[in-house]
Design a binder for these strands. Structure first.
Lengths: 354, 354
DNA sequence: CTGAAAGCGCTTACAG
DNA sequence: CTGAAAGCGCTTACAG
C-alpha cells in the first residue's frame, strides 16, 4: 500500500508531526522555508493526509454529499457537474450518493446524513419514497439534524412554511408560458401528458400542471379532464417510456379532439412524439408538441422540441451559495428560490391546422 | 447535532464500549440478550457509528469509489445504478466521484485513490486527461497502489499486457456487425462519423473504427479516408453536438457519394441525423444511419435508430464480480472481459436507393 | 461472554 | 516559529 503517514513524513523531515500538519494545512505560523521543505517531501513521498483521521478531528469537512434518488435524468447529471465545478472552486469536494429505488431502504438517506462525514448535503431531484409517500416525513426528520441542507431542482414539499432551503426552476411560470404560447398560436384543445395521479402540488409535474391550468383559466378556458393523459407508469413518470405508453393507450381509447400536447418534461415529450408518429400523426402538422427542461435532445431531435430551458448554471450557482451560507452561518433562515426558465421555440409547435 | 457516540450509548446501556462495538458489528461472541438490548438502544437514540473513526481502524472499508471523468452519458448513469444495486446486495456502499474536465488537476484521481477510504475503485467511462494523453501514465501510477481496481465500459489502454482488470462491451465486434449489416443491405459507400484524430486503438471509438475497417476489408473494400467525417469537437467526441457540427461541416465541404453513415455512438448518430435533416436528406430514404450503445433515445427518436445495445446488466454484474474477487484475493491476476452487444435493427437503416 | 487498554492518523490548544 | 501531549470515535487483541 503506497502512502505514508504524517508521522513517517515528520521523521524524514526531522520535524514534529504538528509542524507537518500546520504546513499541510496552510496555516500562517510556519516558517516559509520549513513549509517548503515539508511540501516538497510530501510530494516526493506521495504523502496524502488520511481523510478519515482528519475528519475524525475536524467536525466540519470540506466535503458535500449530493444525494440522488431513483431516476437520474441527463438534467440531474448536468447539474451535478456544475455543482462540482462551483463547489470545487470554493475548495469543497463533492461526493454523489445515488440511491436506486429498489435498493433504498428506509434508513439509507438518514444514514448518509447521520454519518457526519459531510459538511453539507444537497438533495438533487426528487426525494422520499414515492410509494410510501414519505417525503414530508423524511423532510421533517432531516430538520432535526443540524446539517446544512439544500434541495436542488426540486422544492421542499414538507409543508408550509418549508423546513429546508431549495433552488428550483419556476415550474409553474414556465408551464404557464408554454401554455400561453400555444393559446396564442390558436390552440384551444391542449392535452397534458405525463403527470401523476394526485394533483397535489407535491411534485414538479404538479406545479407544471398548475401553470397549464392557470393559463387556460386566464384565457377563459378550463381543464378538460379527458385531455389529461393518465400515466401508465406512475413510478417512472419522467421517462420516454411513460410518455410513449401513456399516449399510445390514450390514443387507442379514442380521445376527444386535440391540436396540441404538452409533455411534462422533454423525455416524456419525446415518448409522446413517438406515439403520435406511430399513430400516423405528424408534429407539428397534426399536433403541436412541447416539452420542459431544455435537454440537448430537444434541440437535436426531429422535429426539434419547443421547451422551457432550465437555467442550470444559475440553479447550480444559487444552490452552492445557499448551502455555503448555511455552512458558515448555522441557524440562518431557509430560502426558497424559484428561477425563471427560458422559453425556447422550435419546430414542434405551429398554429393548428385549418 | 443529532447522533450519539459509542461511549454515550455504552453508558446508557450499562456496558463497555467494546461490547457495543461487538454488538453493532454482529460478532458472534456477544450474549444474544445483551446484543438485543444494545441494538434496541441504538435504534432509540439514533446511534450511527462514525464512519471516519471506523475506517481509521479498519483498513478495508465496505465502500467502493466510482470515478467518472468528463462527459457523463446516460449510459454511464445507467451502469452506475446497476453497479450500485449489485454491489449493494453484497453489502457495499457506492460513492461516485465525478471529475469534470475543467476542474480536474493532475492529482485528483490519485488523491481519491490514495485517501484509502475505499476498499475498491471502479473507473467508469474514459479516464486520463485527453489533452495530456496521460491515460497510460495514470494507469501505471495506479498499478503501484494496491487498491483493487476495475475499468468499467472501457478497457485499460496502459499497454500490453494490461495492468488492470476491465469489463467492456466488445466495441470491435459490435461495430463489425453493424458494418456487415449495412454491407448486406447493399451499401458500399459507408461513412464513419465521430471518431477522434489518432486511430490508435486507445479509445472506444478507435475500436469501433477498427470493426468498421475490418468488415469493409473482409468484403473486399477498403476505408476511403474521404468518408471519415473529421470531428470538430475533439474534446467532446461522444456528443450530439459533435455529430451535428462535424457532419454539417463535412456536408458543406462537398463530400463524395455515400449511402450510409455510422455514428460512433447513439448521441453522435442523433446529431448526424439532425445534420442530414437540415441538409434535406431523409433517413433512411437518402441515407441509412446507425448508432452504438442502445440508449433509450435510439428506440424513441424518429426514425428509431439501428444500433448495438450494450449489455449493461452483464457489464455491471461482471464488474462487481471482478472487483470483489480482487478485494478478497489481492494479487490475483487481472482479467479483461469483452462482452458482446446485441444488434438492434430499427427504422434508420434500409437498402440504398435505386 | 465482558471489560480495560492500546492505538488507528490526524489536529489543536498549550507551552516554550 | 516549533514541539509534546491530549483526544476525536472507533476496533481489537488481551485478560479475565
Amino acid at each position: 500500500m503506497a502512502g505514508i503517514t504524517i508521522k513517517e513524513l515528520a521523521e524524514r523531515c526531522g520535524v514534529a508531526v504538528s509542524t507537518v500538519s500546520r504546513a499541510m494545512n496552510d496555516r500562517s505560523d510556519v516558517n516559509p522555508a520549513t513549509r517548503a521543505r515539508i511540501l516538497a517531501a510530501a510530494r516526493e513521498y506521495g504523502y496524502v493526509p488520511n481523510t478519515s483521521a482528519r475528519s475524525l478531528k475536524i467536525s466540519s469537512t470540506r466535503a458535500i454529499a449530493v444525494i440522488i434518488q431513483g431516476e437520474t435524468s441527463p438534467l440531474l447529471v448536468q447539474v451535478l457537474g456544475l455543482l462540482e465545478t462551483t463547489l470545487g472552486e470554493q475548495g469543497y469536494d463533492v461526493m454523489l450518493s445515488h440511491i436506486s429505488d429498489r435498493s433504498a431502504h428506509a434508513g439509507t438517506v438518514e444514514r448518509i446524513v447521520y454519518e457526519r462525514k459531510f459538511g453539507g448535503v444537497i438533495f438533487l431531484g426528487r426525494y422520499g419514497d414515492r410509494a410510501r409517500g414519505n417525503a414530508p416525513e423524511l423532510s421533517r426528520s432531516l430538520a432535526r439534524i443540524e446539517v446544512p441542507l439544500v434541495f436542488c431542482t426540486t422544492a421542499d414539499f414538507s409543508g408550509s412554511p418549508s423546513l429546508h432551503s431549495s433552488v428550483s426552476v419556476d415550474d409553474y411560470s414556465g408551464s404557464y408560458e408554454l401554455t400561453r404560447r400555444l393559446l396564442d398560436l390558436g390552440h384551444r384543445r391542449i392535452a397534458f401528458g405525463g403527470g401523476g395521479g394526485e394533483y397535489d402540488r407535491q411534485h414538479a409535474w404538479a406545479l407544471r400542471f398548475s401553470g397549464y391550468r392557470s393559463a387556460l383559466e386566464d384565457a377563459g378556458l378550463e381543464v378538460d379532464p379527458s385531455l389529461v393523459i393518465p400515466s401508465v407508469s406512475p413510478d417512472q413518470l419522467y421517462t420516454m417510456a411513460n410518455g410513449h405508453e401513456s399516449t399510445r393507450a390514450w390514443l387507442a381509447a379514442g380521445p376527444p379532439d386535440f391540436t396540441a400536447i404538452m409533455g411534462m418534461c422533454d423525455a416524456v415529450a419525446i415518448g409522446i412524439g413517438r406515439a403520435l408518429h406511430e399513430a400516423g400523426l405528424g408534429v407539428p402538422a397534426d399536433c403541436s408538441l412541447t416539452g420542459f427542461d431544455g435537454l440537448d435532445i430537444a434541440r437535436y431531435c426531429i422535429p426539434s422540441l419547443t421547451t422551457v430551458r432550465q437555467p442550470l448554471e444559475d440553479i447550480a450557482r444559487a444552490t452552492a451559495r445557499v448551502l455555503l451560507s448555511a455552512v458558515s452561518q448555522p441557524g440562518h433562515a431557509t430560502e426558497q428560490l424559484w428561477i425563471r426558465g427560458e422559453l425556447v421555440e422550435a419546430e414542434s409547435t405551429a398554429p393548428p391546422r385549418h
